[in-house]
């Protein structure tokens, strides 16, 4: 299978800037919650084959803690706040000021993680709305701790006009204490990148 659908450099730059603005606001929000410096990396905008999406977070079977929010409105898509289980425990421990030494997250930690996903996503999307004038509404946060690919599939389920590829706007962030990075993914539903680019005054060539 060949990738017949390509993103031009200019379009990729524009989408990267979207990722930059959104993630910067999300990182700022996280920094305020944690009272710590949060660093972020330059966002990446890629068309990734379905099979390789989980590689970004450690492989298809890597156990991850994921907060998922469905985005509806002028732009439909999917937001994921995703990290290793250890990283999630560390992060919720910072917020709750205690770390329980059990293998999985307890209810309080799950709730804290979901709320962080909620705040990060709200910051991310509201900054995009300011920038693009597109209205976007996140769902409530949904949490799952399991194999990365099994979880991420939920963002890949629309009938993709571009074949088995997904457009992924990806940023990784980490606080000063964490060894591992947490990831923020924005996966516009297939075809929705056109909406984003149009809002930025660009037309995509097909």
């Amino acid at each position: 299978m060949t990738n017949k659908y390509q993103l031009g450099d200019e379009a990729a730059d524009a989408l990267r800037e979207i990722g930059n603005i959104g993630a910067a606001h999300a990182a700022t929000a996280l920094s305020q919650i944690l009272h710590q410096t949060v660093e972020m990396q330059v966002p990446q905008v890629e068309l990734i084959p379905f099979d390789e999406i989980a590689d970004v977070v450690g492989g298809p079977e890597a156990i991850v803690a994921c907060v998922y929010l469905k985005v509806t409105g002028d732009l439909s898509g999917n937001m994921f706040f995703i990290q290793s289980l250890d990283s999630a425990k560390q992060l919720t421990g910072e917020v709750l000021s205690e770390v329980k030494q059990i293998e999985l997250l307890n209810d309080l930690e799950m709730s804290a993680l979901g709320e962080m996903g909620n705040i990060l996503t709200a910051s991310y999307l509201s900054s995009l709305t300011d920038f693009t004038k597109l209205k976007m509404y996140p769902s409530i946060p949904y949490i799952s701790i399991d194999m990365a690919q099994a979880i991420l599939t939920i963002g890949l389920l629309s009938d993709a006009p571009m074949g088995d590829y997904a457009l992924v706007i990806h940023t990784s962030i980490h606080n000063s204490k964490a060894m591992e990075k947490a990831h923020i993914f924005l996966l516009p539903d297939p075809g929705q990148e056109v909406v984003l680019l149009h809002a930025l005054g660009m037309e995509i060539q097909k």
Binding site: F50, D51, Q149
Partner: peptide, 23 residues
């Protein structure tokens, strides 16, 4: 066997697919 993929094989081989969620 990847996502949205299918393969066949014979005796001596195995077929494996990773991370089935809703799939």
């Amino acid at each position: 066997v990847g996502m949205a993929d299918a393969k066949a094989a014979k005796e001596g081989d195995s077929l494996r697919t990773l991370g089935l969620g809703s799939c």
